[in-house]
Write a protein that binds this DNA or RNA. Structure first.
Lengths: 249, 249
DNA sequence: GGCATGATGCTCAATGTGAGTATGAAGGAG
DNA sequence: CTCCTTCATACTCACATTGAGCATCATGCC
């Protein structure tokens, strides 16, 4: 941004050849597991490997728009609107063996999509459980393991102090559905009663629909239905249980 | 990052001409005011305007290193080590009238520097009170007003749940010094006793030097001296007073 | 009709926080 | 030298929030 020693006047071809890309980390809850959308690479390098969806930023296109566009192009997903935020930018000189690629990663939260994810550009696209990737069962192309780790940490942290957990569930949801989001993202169990008390005492977190209906989940008594409220931040936050013991379902 | 429709094979000059830069937001506390380091631009556009230090990323240089290098080059500051973190990336197509510039902003926290800031590349460099810039008394070049606003919000938020406030004070400091950091960054007053109770009850926030000594501030009884501890996160956080009334000193 | 599962309500104790009050220690003004 | 201002620091109390346990109710399944 400074005017100090520009590499070379205004001749574009004389600038260092940077490629600028956007990658997108799409997180959702599928089958009780925090999951991420990956595409299979068709070309070298890392051909056949799984990677985050992404692509080159057009010269007159905002990076965020690139992320939205690539998500549709590579996966066929057509979602009207969803939460998308910038995660961070990865620019280590050797992160792509071909050339210097500066990539800005974006993070999206989606409710579970019944729509089958169909590849378009990319060979294949599907959701993977984050747990399996963290366990090393799948290794991602480039530095995408790191990007995913940063994204998951951002998600785990962000649902603490914002109402973004609601972005993982579809409109009519029960408090149990919402609680399961926290449990899946954090990998812990929460006390149902205390959770409900907390959510309901936070103005604007959820709005009651004054109806009872089937949960998005299985068995048990059906709970009251809610929709997302106006609030965006939680004050005070819902803190993750301190990592003493974290047992799973 | 995807291999989908690369603009053009591997011929660098055929890629869209992106410029990649790093900008750095250096925050410190000077004279009881949260302050930011700015440099005066010598060239068009925005010649004569104040802007954040920054410059072009070398083709084989990590963006964070660019930030450190430019800070030294443009201001003559020679600091051994300081906290530096990535803020976010700004890539709106028209943010620089000359060409498409993608800029990653970094955020640095420094203690008050007695060293006079001497320009090198840039015409001049000096600290400005953030309060004055927020009040509109100074308008920055490009989208640097937005970058600064994001940086200040990040700082205000980050000292809530990390021990980073200690990065604003030099090694032997009193609890009053540390409290003043919070007060300057948040623009509020804190209850001295409650603040001390909180800091001392957080394991690893500060370590007592078992000495009493002059505060880095003026008058009053001298307090006990402390140094930074090992902890990096605060659990639970120190929450900003809810913005009911915020009166200043 | 039993039973498992989950929703909801209620209570209690522990913890953390905001606020007020009191006292000690240092420097400056008169 | 003494009053006065400015902090540092200690103590107390009320109150809000939270974690945990228990009790009850509603559903679907055998």
């Amino acid at each position: 941004m400074s005017d100090a020693v520009a590499p070379a006047g205004y001749d574009p071809s004389a600038y260092p050849p940077f490629a600028v890309t956007s990658d997108i980390v799409v997180l959702t809850i599928r089958g009780g597991e925090l999951s991420v959308l990956l595409v299979e690479r068709g070309n070298e390098p890392y051909a056949g490997c799984w990677a985050l969806p992404g692509g080159f930023v057009d010269i007159d296109e905002p990076g965020e728009e690139t992320a939205r566009r690539e998500l549709v192009e590579e996966t066929g997903l057509e979602i009207s609107s969803f939460h998308l935020e910038q995660l961070r930018t990865y620019s280590a000189p050797q992160r792509d063996p071909r050339m210097r690629v500066v990539s800005t990663a974006y993070l999206a939260f989606l409710p579970d999509l019944p729509a089958p994810v169909a590849g378009d550009d990319a060979a294949r696209a599907r959701f993977f459980a984050v747990r399996d990737i963290e366990a090393g069962e799948v290794t991602l192309a480039f530095d995408h393991d790191q990007i995913l780790a940063d994204a998951v940490e951002r998600a785990r942290s962000k649902i603490e102090y914002t109402t973004l957990a609601a972005a993982f569930v579809e409109k009519p949801f029960t408090l149990g559905d919402l609680r399961r989001v926290y449990e899946c993202v954090w990998g812990t169990r929460l006390h149902p009663s205390n959770f409900a008390r907390k959510v309901l005492s936070t103005p604007g977190f959820v709005r009651s629909l004054d109806v009872r209906g089937a949960s998005q989940f299985e068995g048990g008594r059906v709970g009251a239905l809610y929709e997302t409220g106006d609030a965006t931040v939680l004050h005070p936050a819902i803190l993750r249980p301190t990592a003493d013991e974290e047992d799973e379902r």
